[in-house]
Simulated assay, not measured.
Amino acid sequence: MNAPLTALPGTSVSPRVTVDIWSDIACPWCYVGKRRFEAALRQFPQSGQVDVVWHSFELDRAAPQASTTSTRDILAQKYGRTPAQAQEMLDSMTATAAQEGLEYHFETQQRANTFLAHQLLHLAAEHGRQDAVKERLLRAFFTEGAFLGDVDTLAALAAEVGLDADEVKRELEQQTYAQAVRQDEAQAQAYGISGVPFFVLGGKYGVSGAQSAEALLGALRQVWSDLAPQPALQRIGGVSGAEDCEDGSCAVPKNG
């Protein structure tokens, strides 16, 4: 049984804010959004009381397990652009990422279905390493040209940030977290999320897209303002009778 909590006069029980983030590994704006959110957190005085949870969102569930088509050509086909126009889009995205300290190499990118990678993120969450694994997967995909549709590759990357490679292989091969990925995607649909990144702060505020650090900081401040308790005495449980000496506490006897 948990001990009863009492906020003393002039003090408060500090709340915690959960930020749920839906994103995909193969989403260039999701990596940029991650960096901007991290910049916002560094400016947020209560950052130590923010819990970040990464949720699964596949931009293309039907993507093949592996593809030899270049990112440029995929982009051209998707948006009806010429290869030159698609390359301009990639160059612009690369420049935007560079402003956040990220290095994108679309020319060496190996396209893959991200379903396995999302399952790995759920496994990582159970070990308290979700953010570290998320970061490692994004860097591997956008900077290093790693193929993330392969169990062995995912296990090796996870091992670099503290997970057991054999456990990762076993759980991915058994599809242990497949349903968890689908549940995340069902929740995204229920929220009406159609693009990522998408931030849900405190279960109340939704922020769509890789907004600026300033905008994300403003959202954090807003949700904190809503959740922060007032410094007043709030008794939960405890002694009911003035003369009782039970339940772990004794009351001061009344005079007379």
Rank of each mutant, 00 (worst) to 15 (best):
E107Y: 13
Q46V: 01
A215L: 03
P231N: 00
E38W: 11
P197V: 01
A39G: 10
K169N: 05
A124R: 04
T68Y: 02
A186D: 08
L120W: 01
Q187M: 14
L121Q: 11
G10I: 09
G48P: 08
L233K: 14
F199V: 05
Y191R: 04
Y205V: 10
G128Y: 12
Q85V: 10
S92P: 01
S70R: 09
Q222W: 11
V161C: 13
G241M: 10
I21H: 06
G202A: 06
P253Y: 10
F106N: 00
F44K: 02
D184F: 00
V19T: 08
R81F: 15
M1V: 04
L154K: 08
F141G: 03
E100K: 07
E58Y: 06
Q130L: 05
D60H: 15
T94D: 06
L116W: 11
V52H: 02
V223M: 10
T176V: 07
Y104F: 15
E100R: 05
H105P: 01
W224N: 06
E171Q: 14
E214I: 03
E171N: 07
E38P: 15
E173G: 04
G128E: 01
P231E: 00
F142A: 08
T94C: 04
G48C: 01
S194N: 10
V32L: 08
T94Q: 13
V52P: 03
L41H: 02
Q234V: 14
Y31N: 06
D244W: 03
L163D: 09
A219E: 07
A228R: 03
L138S: 12
A76T: 08
T82F: 14
L123K: 09
Q230S: 14
D73A: 13
Q65A: 10
V13K: 05
